[in-house]
């Protein structure tokens, strides 16, 4: 709209008055859905975080910051946090690497491209309840297919993947990467499509090789795309729990205990909705703060 104003088109003034309205109209369905479904849980979460919640009628007893202290002060918290960070960033990195390689390959032509495209989407299509049980079985020490194959090669390779504290987290991360990389690949392909061919062609004409083209042309164009995906996936990583819950339950010990699992247990096994909400509020605040940093830099780009 500002661009139009600059060019001084006469349509601009009429449009400006209506633009406000149109904007609101366009976002109305989504905001209505938000108002319906998001406001109430948000309010409740904030409310519960500073109260002790007594079931079954959700009676409240004000306790101030003690839920927050309980959440942050538990002896397990540092390990849980460490595991969550490894889980989130480890899987994110691997998924991006795999996703990128696949996305780039989709762009180039080679025989068997269509088959490849379909195959790489298979992990995403499998429901998570099946995928998590399937991977658990594959990793099974005594009658899983992975160790069976490894034993044929070299018996000492067939280790206790899910039962050994040092390998458990990595094993679950690999399963998570398997289920998640097609989705990243898909988003990246969509993003790559948005890069006009002229840019890459121009760079190639200038003599850049493929790596340089990738680094200096492709990546910068995808930057905002990648940022959005990264933020959303980090948030997911902090909240996800069903894969780990099925495969190891957070064990052995606390070696695969992550935040999402912790929150789930707090709410539905300990019935402590107050503390679970407190953790939710902490996550919200982190995201809000992160946005205070992200938004200004975004505004700069737009102007």
């Amino acid at each position: 709209m500002y661009a139009l104003k600059k060019k001084g088109l006469r349509h601009a003034t009429k449009r400006e008055k209506r633009s406000w309205l149109f904007g609101i109209l366009f976002i109305l369905p989504s905001v209505a859905a938000l108002a319906c479904m998001v406001v109430y849980p948000l309010i409740l979460t904030f409310l519960y975080s500073v109260n002790k919640v007594l079931l079954p009628n959700f009676d409240l007893e004000f306790v101030g910051a003690s839920n927050f202290m309980k959440a942050l002060g538990s002896s397990q918290f540092p390990t849980v946090l460490k595991n969550t960070l490894i889980w989130t960033f480890g899987s994110l990195f691997l998924r991006f690497v795999l996703g990128f390689i696949c996305a780039m390959m989709m762009e180039t032509g080679f025989r068997g491209k269509t088959v490849f495209r379909v195959l790489t989407l298979l992990p995403w299509v499998m429901p998570s309840i099946v995928a998590s049980n399937l991977w658990r079985w594959i990793y099974n020490v005594d009658n899983g297919i992975l160790n069976y194959v490894l034993k044929q090669i070299n018996p000492s390779l067939a280790i206790n993947w899910l039962g050994n504290p040092s390998t458990a987290l990595v094993s679950v991360i690999m399963a998570y990467v398997w289920t998640g990389f097609p989705y990243i690949m898909l988003m990246l392909v969509a993003g790559l499509q948005g890069i006009p061919k002229e840019y890459t062609e121009a760079a190639q004409i200038d003599g850049a090789n493929s790596v340089q083209v990738f680094w200096h042309v492709t990546l910068p164009q995808l930057k905002s795309f990648i940022m959005i995906l990264t933020i959303l996936e980090i948030i997911s990583g902090f909240n996800s729990f069903d894969l780990i819950f099925t495969m190891t339950g957070g064990g052995p010990g606390v070696s695969t205990e992550i935040l999402g699992l912790n929150i789930y247990r707090t709410a539905f096994q300990n019935y402590d909705f107050g503390t679970a909400s407190a953790i939710g509020v902490i996550l919200l605040l982190i995201v809000l703060v992160a946005f205070l940093f992200y938004a200004p830099s975004n505004k700069k780009k737009q102007a």
């Binding site: 009658n143 206790n160 039962g163």
Partner: peptide, 21 residues
Amino acid sequence: PEGCINYAITADLFPLAMNGE
């Protein structure tokens, strides 16, 4: 069995028992 640290009775041990392990 070595995997017992992560096993459940019906899901993991029962198959092994049925195989005579």
